[in-house]
Every structure is written in C-alpha cells, then in structure tokens.
Design a protein around this nucleic acid. Structure first.
Lengths: 229, 229
DNA sequence: TAGTTACTAGAACGATCAATCAATATTTGT
DNA sequence: ACAAATATTGATTGATCGTTCTAGTAACTA
C-alpha cells in the first residue's frame, strides 16, 4: 500500500535527520534503510526538502500525543508536569546515548534562512510546545505570581530545555542538563515563594538549593521506546 | 606568506561553517572565497575535518579577547557583565539578520558522536565561556546567596543564551531572545533578594517583573564588526 | 650557487549527491 | 473483466563532493 511506504519513508527520514542532520543524510541512505527505490520516494516527495517538510509536519501533528500528553500523564501537579516534560528529554538523551537530542532544535540551527517554509514549521513546533507548557502554568493558578508573564516563562522553559540538551550532548553527560534543570526549579520555587508572599502567607523563602538529584536510571512508568522528538 | 594564506582559509571557513554549517559548506566554496587552490588548503590541513578543528582551536584561543573581555569592558558591575555578554549575542543576531547565531552551538548540534576531537573542542569552548561567567558571579560576592552553586548558575547562563539564540533564529525575531533574558534577569534578582534576606537586610522582594525592554538599536560603544562567535 | 624546504597552481580522481524517466507492476473503480 | 490511476523498479543523469597528484614557483640554507 502506498501510504505505508510513504510512512516508512517518513519514519526513516525522521530518524536519520534527527541523528545525522539534514545535510549529512543522503537520499540513498534513506532508500537503503527503507528498502525502496528512488522512484518511490520521489513519487511521494518531489524533493529532499519536501521530505523534510513532511517530516516536520508529521512531527508537529504528533507533538501532543508523543510528548505533551505523556508528560501531563506523569503527574497531576501542573508545575511538576513541566519537569516531567524535561525528564522525557533527559531519558531520551540516555536512551540514545546522547546521539540525537531534540529534532526541532537540531534543525533550527542547521537550516538557516532560505527554506522559509521549513523555518515556519520549526517555529510552529516551538510554539505548540511552549503553548503546552503555558497551559500547565495557567493551571498552577495563584501558586505563581499574579503578574507573572506565563507566556514568557513557558518560552523560557523551552529555552532551558534546548540549551540544556545542547550542552549535555556536547559533554556526553547528563551533568549540565541536570544542573540547568535544577536552576530552573530553583527559579520556579522562588517565584512560588514570591506568590505566597503576594498572598500574605508565610513569608518563608524556600530552603537553600539542595540540588535534588533526579533518580538516575529506572525511570518512572511508561518505558516507551524512544521516539522522534 | 604561508601563514597569511592559512589565516585567510581559517577565517573564510569559520564564517561559512558559522553561516551554513559544516556539512553544507563545500571545500570548493571556501577555496573560491579565499581565491586559492585546493593544493594550498590541503597543504595546511590534511582534511576538511582538520580544517574544522583548526577553526575551533582558533575560536577557543580568541574567546577571551573577542567575547568575554568586551563584555567585561562594558560595565564594572559583575552581574551586569552577564547581561552585557548576552547583549553581545543579541547584537550579533541583529547584525547578521539572524543568519548565524553561535558558532559553537551550531556545531554542537551538527556534529554528533564520531569526531570526538571536535566534540572535545566544543565542550572546551563551553567550559571557557562558562568559567568566564563564573568569575563574574564570584566577584558579585554576597550579592548572591552564599550557598549558591555559582558554577551551576554560570552553566545556566550559557544554557539560556544558547536556547534563546536558537529560538530567535527560528522566529527571525528578537522577541524570544529578549523574553528569555528577561526571565534570567528576574531569576537573578530573586537570588539577590534572597541573598539580602540571608544577610538580615530589608526583606523586600524585588518589584514585579516589569519586563525591562532592552534599548533597541543604537547599541553602546564599541560597534565592532560581527566576528566569529 | 646548489640544494632544500615551503608553498601554490590546477587538472584529475572515484565516490556520492539529488533527481529524472521510461518501463513495469499493482491497486482501484466500474 | 477491463481500463485508469497509482505505485514501484532500477538504470542513469550531470553536478558536486572531498581528496590526490604532479609540476612548478618562491624563499631560505649552506
């Protein structure tokens, strides 16, 4: 069935683009991986760039089901969902031995200007991702300061994730990732303390940053295979 | 003189790798740009990858003089030096019309495993960069909490810079960059407030995050041309 | 001045690149 | 069962890839 071939091409292309990058992945490699000939690929996609667009559209469509919903399913606490989301990327780094990171982040830095259609899809993925985080921040209600710009903070979470993944890959270690996430947690705890102060509650600041080490290995439930983000 | 040719090759390669990426830059393009033949290039560099190593070594050597010292020269306030540093990258985004971002960040995501020599140089650049920030944080003395992990915070500043540059490039806009930097400023102000509290001073929390807009255009002095970071 | 080294010119190499196309097979609709 | 649409094959295209090689020039050493 044609649709099946198309999907297999998209899946292989997504994995290879993720792992090696767009330029470094040859069409021949994709064809070999899928076990199909060039005519088939060019029947569905008029060019390699169109294939990239297909990969990004597919990623955008599945962002909720493969990333945001799993993170939301990990806990009911809206703020902890943010860190569950970061935990997904952390696990991805471990499972892939730091070879992939974030597909969208990789492509964002690889495809510069030119290819405006591609860049628009990358930005769209970023927006959907951040909007998901924003919905959790909104759900946190008065646990965060009333005057906090929740949109900006959700974008900041994305900023931290991408920067942390980048450093972890460069170092081949979780240490920079965990350190960055710990800083983000510290920030959000300070915001929560500020919110309590604003509500006239106990003025206690959170205790010192005791660097909560994430439970290494044996990640929570849902040990699903590493997917495409 | 041979050294001059070598330098011109390195300069052109650095700019092209920065702008288009390593894989997307052909050796022929570099040769055309420098106005030299392949024999010259391969006289100095045994391979394209060795040329990349040369670019990274050169970048690492000049990190202090081209980035850290200019940021330190912008202000005497150690904490403001952090934001002056971020301002340099902000200006770079504008000057290059979002076509480059951070060379090291770009390469960090492009060259995965394999090429361990390259990855080590990337990590070295990250370390030097963060160490520079850490020296400023140390100089801030008791304006930051005594128990703060200044090494982790300096890494966090790098995390925020890289993530913010990535989003700005994807969006083709300074907005995500400015928003992320504003969040970082908010975090550091909360840390400063916590430090004051720890010293038994006025318990006042910083005012609401009024989103200080950075002075657009007309950047401070030293309008040096956009270099290689 | 002869010899050696450092550097550059430029053609050429095989490999791989993305992409094309006519021919063939398969599925679908009637 | 037949025709039309869809899907796939696989050889082939010209361009470009990184790299090699020989020849030759320039600069320093003895």
């Amino acid at each position: 069935m044609g649709t099946d071939t198309r999907n297999r091409i998209l899946a292989a292309a997504a994995r290879l683009f993720h792992e090696r990058g767009f330029e470094a992945t040859g069409v021949a490699t994709i064809l070999r991986e899928v076990g199909v000939n060039s005519g088939s690929l060019y029947h569905f996609f008029p060019s390699k760039e169109a294939l990239l667009v297909g990969v990004l559209e597919r990623h955008l469509e599945s962002l909720h089901s493969t990333i945001l919903e799993p993170a939301a399913g990990a806990t009911d606490d809206p703020i902890e969902r943010v860190f569950a989301l970061l935990g997904l990327y952390r696990r991805g780094l471990v499972i892939t031995d730091f070879t992939r990171g974030c597909l969208i982040g990789n492509l964002a830095l690889e495809v510069g200007d030119g290819r405006p259609h591609v860049r628009a899809l990358i930005e769209a993925s970023f927006s959907v991702w951040a909007e998901g985080v924003r919905s959790w921040l909104d759900a946190a209600g008065d646990r965060l300061p009333a005057d906090l710009d929740r949109g900006a903070l959700s974008r900041f979470v994305l900023t931290v994730m991408e920067g942390a993944v980048m450093q972890a890959r460069a170092a081949g270690s979780l240490e920079p990732f965990d350190a960055s996430v710990a800083q983000l947690r510290s920030y959000m705890e300070l915001l929560a303390a500020q919110a309590r102060l604003g509500r006239g509650e106990a003025p206690a600041m959170p205790a010192g940053r005791e660097t909560v080490e994430p439970s290494d290995e044996a990640p929570p439930p849902g040990r699903s295979a590493w997917r495409s983000w």
